[in-house]
């Protein structure tokens, strides 16, 4: 009893941005994520000045797309990563990125708290597991994400600590498909 369950980092800020267009909340999000996005782009081979501009672009996109953020599907860090990744594809290769069909997660307010808490816990555990990986394996994963490895060189990256999160996401998807089948 007492304290509300921890809904995970940055979700409150995202809601303040989405519902109230709160610039102070945006400032907090910026202070945390903008340097990380900039660093990610630089480690991916982007020159510092361009990375600075792009990190700002990514944060502006976060503000504009705040209504598309869904805490049941991804943590804030995951969501911002996907925006940064797409921006990198855009600047480095000037090509479009085909996205999968959307499963149409409608508003489903009751289940959402619980799902987003569980997802956040898995995400935290994954981050923890990543920190305790052997240095060599961790470096290899980073190279895969920074674009230093070709898709063939990635082939040996097995045994990643993805098990729990993968099955959680899969369960959520199955629940959703089930709900869609019943509504049609």
């Amino acid at each position: 009893t007492g304290a509300a369950p921890d809904r995970g980092a940055w979700i409150v800020e995202m809601e303040l941005i989405r519902d109230r267009r709160d610039k102070e909340a945006f400032g907090r999000l910026f202070a945390h994520f903008a340097p990380r996005v900039k660093g990610f782009l630089m480690k991916s081979g982007t020159e510092a000045g361009v990375a600075e501009d792009c990190a700002q672009d990514v944060m502006v996109t976060v503000w504009r797309k705040a209504h598309l953020f869904d805490a049941r599907r991804a943590s804030v860090a995951t969501w911002i990563f996907t925006i940064a990744r797409n921006r990198r594809i855009d600047i480095a290769r000037r090509e479009r990125r085909p996205e999968p069909e959307d499963l149409g997660w409608g508003p489903e307010p009751d289940a959402s708290q619980e799902d987003s808490i569980a997802l956040q816990q898995d995400t935290d555990q994954l981050g923890e597991a990543l920190r305790t990986l052997p240095e060599k394996q961790r470096a290899l994963i980073e190279r895969a994400y920074f674009g230093d490895l070709s898709h063939r060189e990635i082939a040996d990256l097995t045994g990643l600590p993805l098990g729990t999160i993968k099955s959680r996401i899969r369960l959520a998807l199955e629940k959703l498909r089930h709900a869609m089948d019943q509504s049609t």
Partner: peptide, 23 residues
């Protein structure tokens, strides 16, 4: 799809370690 989303989560987790100061 679940696998892609968990690899995206891994990408989000990697962001924690990439900080570079903004202007």
């Amino acid at each position: 799809r679940a696998a892609v989303e968990s690899y995206e989560t891994l990408g989000g987790a990697l962001l924690d370690d990439t900080s570079s100061e903004m202007a």
